[in-house]
Design a binder for these strands. Structure first.
Lengths: 203, 203
DNA sequence: TCGACAACTTACTAACTAATAAGTAATCTC
DNA sequence: GAGATTACTTATTAGTTAGTAAGTTGTCGA
């Protein structure tokens, strides 16, 4: 009422993006069944029907949410494609570590996997695809990294990929309870198993 | 209406136990916010008020649920206390592997950690205690196992405990999507990191 | 300046949610 | 066999949920 500025001025697809940002945070904090259209609307100062305007059903919102993460992962992977295996893996861990820093969030794929059978089928399908893509990427990086001599670990890359993925995902969830330092401990241990010494590296 | 038999005949504390069993399954399948009093009641053929009779609030039910798992863990740990470290760890993994076999359930602690901020505070407190207890136990077993020469791994037992716990918890969640064999692959990889050869062992 | 469209709000619904109160029937106790 | 207790059911509530329909307002192109 005071001024007509301050709302949509420059960028057009403002609300839609803010909905996705807010919903992502709520998903990572409370799970898919732990937030509602009302929660999103309240935070953004709009009515819940406005959220329905952009995402007609919660299934649609869920799919958009997961696909947004999927796209980001994919873009990041393409970007990191040329780097040494250790740097790629370091970046992968850093992405998740950042979730922790930005308010004790967990991995979006992880939380949706945990409540997999309680989310709409369309969301399940998107989660499945994302999980498969990330897993395949891990196998690829680990295989190439060992072939080039950068990484030295025993056992099949497939198994190592599951351990790395599960450790990151599980440690994020545990870090909420046992403390963020547990995540760092787990990461350090992973580097040991990968045969990479990581003292003063940053990514 | 047909016959007055067929209901409570022999054992007395029947319903309360059945509620806990059903609620456990629903928790491990759908998460804490993925089931209701109505769901439990429907499965047991009673009214939801009957569930409220035994567990007045969902927070109370949640605490009872977690504490039941906590007690079982504790009893099992006491039971396994004398065994070799590798056998204790093998049993720990087997408990979780059994969740997978009994209908793709995940670790109850894991699913509650994932939606931690969306469950009642009393439940959070119980989950925290359980997670801490299991973690402490893992640290203990790993420390003793390495001291006795049974296990040979690098790095602090604290870090190894987080990796083992997170891998088991995370791999259970992933196994729903990537397949149960991923859990076995992850386990095999863990044994490699622990310096234990596990070809034809069973527990 | 007209009308079409985008981005909402207001107003509503039906279903589900946890929770409570009051009643009932069987059983156990003295 | 009277009274209390246990284990429920019936009935109801207030709040929340996803979802819809019908309006309102601003902007933009012709």
């Amino acid at each position: 009422m005071v001024s007509s500025r301050e709302r949509k001025v420059a960028s057009k697809p403002d609300t839609r993006e803010e909905i996705l940002r807010t919903a992502s945070r709520l998903l990572q904090l409370n799970g898919f069944n732990g937030f509602s259209y009302g929660h999103i609307a309240k935070e953004l100062g709009v009515k819940s029907a406005a959220v329905h305007y952009h995402f007609p059903s919660k299934a649609a919102l869920g799919v958009a949410l997961v696909d947004r993460f999927r796209t980001r992962y994919r873009l990041w992977m393409e970007d990191a494609a040329g780097l040494p295996a250790a740097d790629q893996l370091s970046g992968y861990v850093a992405i998740h570590r950042r979730f922790l820093e930005r308010g004790a969030r967990v991995c979006p794929g992880g939380v949706l996997q945990a409540e997999l059978y309680a989310v709409p089928e369309e969301v399940q399908a998107s989660v499945t695809q994302m999980a498969q893509e990330v897993h395949d990427w891990l196998v690829e990086v680990l295989t190439a990294g060992r072939a080039s001599g950068e990484l030295t670990f025993e056992g099949p890359p497939e198994a190592m990929a599951t351990v790395v993925g599960a450790t990151v995902q599980g440690a994020l969830q545990m870090a909420r309870i046992l403390g963020a330092e547990q995540f760092d401990l787990a990461e350090a241990q992973l580097w040991r198993f990968l045969g990479v010494s990581r003292e003063l590296t940053k990514s």
